[in-house]
Amino acid sequence: MASEHSFDITAAIDKQEIKNAFEQAKKELDTRYDLKGIKTEIEFSEKENIFKLSSSSEAKLDVLKDILISKLIKRNINSNAIKELSKENGAMYRLNLKVNDSIDSESAKKINKAIKDSKLKVNSSIRGDEIRVVSKQIDDLQSVMRLVKNLNLELNLTFKNLK
């Protein structure tokens, strides 16, 4: 039995799941009766992880957003990981949504501080865009997992490499 146990906290999102959710949302757009006759589009930029939604109606733009987010949730992508970048009004209404798939330094510091303030017997360290948590007891690691989930950060946090 190992003397120390550890796991990593990351915000990585499976790119294939994002693509699948995008394709499902596009299919639903084609079949929705309430969107017939209204110009609506969904695009996805893989390099920047940005969804570009556009519609001729602001109400239908909100429907597009709801469809996309529901498909992402069904693919186990947390809705907190979707951040609204910009919203444009005009002849066409446009909305840009970014998928946040990495832990920024501010969020990493916040997670690290919450772990230290919990007074659990664990050590945590920031390693690039992930946080390594080490402890002698697995129960303490599970407590850290619950603590981090309850922080309600705008990230799709996952725990991996539990050893």
Rank of each mutant, 00 (worst) to 15 (best):
F51W: 03
Y33P: 02
R75N: 08
L61G: 04
T31H: 01
A108K: 04
A2V: 13
I50P: 05
S79Q: 01
D34R: 08
E41W: 06
V99I: 15
M92L: 13
K36C: 10
L157C: 04
I73W: 14
A108S: 07
D62I: 13
V63A: 14
D117N: 14
N78G: 08
E48M: 00
I115T: 05
M1G: 15
F7C: 05
S86G: 02
K71P: 02
L153C: 09
A91W: 09
A114H: 13
G128H: 06
E58M: 09
I126H: 06
A108W: 08
I9Q: 00
N123Q: 05
K52P: 01
L157Y: 14
L53G: 06
V99D: 09
Y93E: 12
N76S: 07
L157Q: 02
R94I: 01
D62G: 09
A11K: 06
K160D: 06
L68N: 12
Q24H: 08
E41F: 11
S102C: 08
G37H: 12
R75T: 03
I138Q: 12
I69R: 02
L157M: 04
S57P: 06
I69W: 10
L61T: 07
Q16V: 03
N150F: 06
L151T: 12
S3I: 13
R94C: 00
I9C: 03
R127W: 04
I42Y: 00
K149E: 02
V99N: 05
N49A: 01
N152E: 07
H5P: 02
M145S: 00
K83V: 15
I82Q: 08
R127D: 06
N150K: 04
R94N: 03
K60H: 12
S70T: 11
L61Q: 04
I73V: 13
I67C: 15
N80R: 04
L151H: 09
K110D: 06
K60I: 03
I73A: 12
G37R: 08
I77A: 05
L97H: 06
E23N: 11
E23Q: 08
T158K: 13
G128A: 03
K83E: 12
L157T: 07
I138A: 10
V133T: 12
K71T: 09
L162N: 12
D66N: 14
D8K: 14
K52T: 02
E46T: 01
S125Q: 14
I126V: 15
K65S: 13
G128M: 07
N156K: 01
D129M: 07
H5S: 04
V148C: 01
R32N: 11
L157S: 02
K15Q: 02
I103G: 04
F22G: 09
L120R: 01
E130C: 14
Y33C: 03
K15L: 01
S125D: 12
L64A: 09
N20D: 05
R94F: 02
K74S: 13
A91R: 04
I50N: 10
R94A: 00
I69F: 03
R32Q: 10
S125N: 12
L85W: 02
N161W: 13
Q16A: 08
K26L: 14
M1N: 12
K19I: 01
N100I: 13
S55R: 15
L68R: 12
V99A: 11
I115E: 00
L29T: 05
L61F: 05
F22M: 14
S125I: 15
A12R: 06
L85H: 00
G128I: 11
S143Y: 10
E48H: 00
K136Q: 14
K60V: 04
N80K: 07
N49C: 00
N89S: 07
L120P: 00
